[in-house]
Design a protein around this nucleic acid. Structure first.
Length: 501
RNA sequence: AGCGAGGUAGGGUAGCCUGGAGUGCCCGCCGGGCUCAUAACCCGGAGAUCGGAGGUUCAAAUCCUUCCCUCGCUACCA
């Protein structure tokens, strides 16, 4: 059985999850569930990035110790992934997972042994209030944007990674497709960046500046690892690196990292360079999504338009929110979220189109045909079946290309075709004159319901399970959705989606 | 400033790579039909100089040039 190891990025826990995190979880999960249906042994890793100075500062503000602050906020992310139905196999918490520090340490040592880590004096503009370094661009008239104070020029020794050494190899492996970047537009972006020249980057902070929070640099008690070796290493930790070599052998390299557009550089440049240095195989692909705007604006605390996905999940349901995020937001571009649009999509597409087709088909068979439908002689229905099968092929192709939104649109098209067929053939009338003809219509519709149940499985796993359960069927690969099942026994059923008032 | 992404009917989106009648989808609007179904569904219709201007071509939303507008990133944002 081929394997498919996919990761989400691990979010910082210095704030609560927002709807954008939900988008990434939904996308990663749809991909994982699809691969699983297609026969892959899938493994999905998510988690939280907790070893950052921001967390220390945020905790201090709230008068908490950093550990409990991380605990609390990590729990909020775990609540989100659980409620949205993310089918994760491991949830890595970088500040508490016993094996994680060892992974980061091993990665560091491997790069160090290769001669890619060195100590250098670092000079920067440091704001004492923020306890952060700023670049000149980030300053407002030379002042800290937060504290309106003049930052001091601070000099400190840090460890650096020799990224410059990997410029050519990185360009080559991205150009050759050894590491695939989807969508391709991001590839040119990254190649431009690489070809404009790579500088070595800082990979540690003094214990003092990091408040002692994080993974210590091996062999130097005065330094703490900065985010890179720590957070990116979580992809190795989740796969059992060091802690479970059998599992790691099986899972690594990662087949896909699902990430947002803001962290492409770190995943397409820093990360592969670190792995090249450490002699570890590279991930096979990056899947890069856009961001969610709310009411047409970027989410921000100052605007006060940050959407809490857990509230939406509680109010509307996991399938519903997943459907909205996948279909309404273009997979590789930015898209907008609004509760109004969510309600409209639920009523018009889930209730009105898919739910209605399933419901009218199943209740008709149950109440008018005694709940049993068997394969009749197929006349015109055969043509529709062929057309639907073509759409299944289309959906599969779109899934393989990563166009999740278009694939879901295709599924909706199948449901529409079913509704249209039902309406045009008027089985409620046929039943009075030609029982056999009515049965043909319902037989085809029941099979379309099964097709929908399978195709919807990655997107809306809960509704899919219920629908397939009504039909006495199980999820399968997309090709299996083209099969005609000869006989269905339909009992009493309930509606799949509730209308939003 | 550099790099990137977008600009397709009132709104949203697909199509663009691999040119072939503005082709499709969702919402909204207008009209009709139907009644199996969560008063839903089905059909029909109005509505677009495919951001502007050039160019290549028998043919351009699609390729090229240029300009305008919006957004993102520019070294720890999902």
């Amino acid at each position: 059985m081929p394997k498919f190891y996919v990761t989400t990025s691990i979010p910082y826990v210095n704030a609560r999850p927002h709807i954008g995190h939900a988008l990434e979880f939904a996308q990663a999960d749809v991909i994982a569930r699809y691969r699983k249906l297609e026969g892959y042994e899938t493994y999905l890793v998510t988690g939280t990035d907790e070893n950052s100075l921001k967390n220390v500062l945020a905790a201090e503000k709230l008068g908490l110790d950093t550990g409990s602050f991380c605990e609390r906020n990590s729990a909020a992310f775990r609540e989100l992934v659980d409620k949205i139905g993310l089918s994760y196999d491991a949830f890595v918490r970088t500040s508490v997972d016993a094996g994680h520090g060892k992974v980061a340490e091993f990665l560091w040592k491997s790069c160090s042994d290769r001669g890619d880590i060195y100590k250098k004096k670092y000079r920067g503009l440091y704001c004492v209030g923020c306890e952060l370094f700023y670049t000149e661009d980030e300053l407002d008239n030379g002042l800290c944007p937060e504290h309106r104070s003049k930052p001091e020029l601070v000099e400190e020794e840090n460890y650096f990674f020799r990224l410059s050494r990997y410029q050519e190899r990185l360009a080559k492996l991205l150009e050759s497709g050894e590491m695939v970047i989807t969508p391709a537009s991001r590839l040119s972006e990254i190649l431009n960046f690489i070809n404009s020249g790579l500088s070595d980057f800082s990979i540690s902070r003094s214990v003092k500046r990091s408040h002692g929070w994080g993974v210590p640099v091996p062999g130097d008690t005065s330094q703490i690892m900065y985010v890179w070796f720590d957070a990116l290493g979580s992809y190795l930790t989740g796969a059992g690196f060091i802690s479970n070599s059998g599992k790691f052998e099986r899972l690594w390299p990662a087949d896909m990292h699902v990430i947002g557009k803001g962290i492409v550089r770190f995943h397409a440049v820093y990360w592969p360079a670190m792995l090249l240095s450490a002699g570890i195989a590279l991930p096979k692909s990056l899947f890069i999504h856009g961001y969610v705007t709310v009411g047409g604006q970027k989410m921000s605390k100052s605007i006060g338009n940050v959407v809490d996905p857990v509230l939406e999940l509680d109010k509307y349901g996991a399938d519903q929110l997943r459907y909205y995020l996948i279909k309404e937001i273009s997979t590789f571009q930015d898209g907008d979220f609004s509760e109004k649009a969510l309600g409209e999509v639920i009523n018009n597409e889930l209730v009105g189109n898919i739910g209605n087709f399933v419901n009218r088909t199943l209740t008709f068979i149950h109440s008018r045909l005694g709940g049993v439908i068997e394969e009749p002689r197929l006349e015109e229905g055969r043509l529709l079946v062929l057309r639907i099968n073509g759409m299944v092929d289309d959906a599969k192709k779109l899934m393989d290309l990563g166009h999740l939104n278009l694939a879901l649109l295709k599924v909706l098209e199948i449901s529409s075709a079913g509704n249209k067929y039902f309406q045009e053939n008027e089985p409620w009338k046929l039943l009075k004159e030609d029982d056999e003809a009515a049965r043909e219509v319902l037989f085809v519709c029941a099979n379309i319901c099964r097709t929908l149940g399978i195709l919807l499985n990655p997107f809306m796993p809960y509704a899919s399970e219920r629908l397939l359960g009504y039909l006495g069927e199980k999820p399968s690969g997309f090709d299996g959705a083209k099969k005609l099942v000869k006989k269905f026994e339909i009992g009493s059923t309930e509606i799949l989606f509730d209308k939003v008032k």
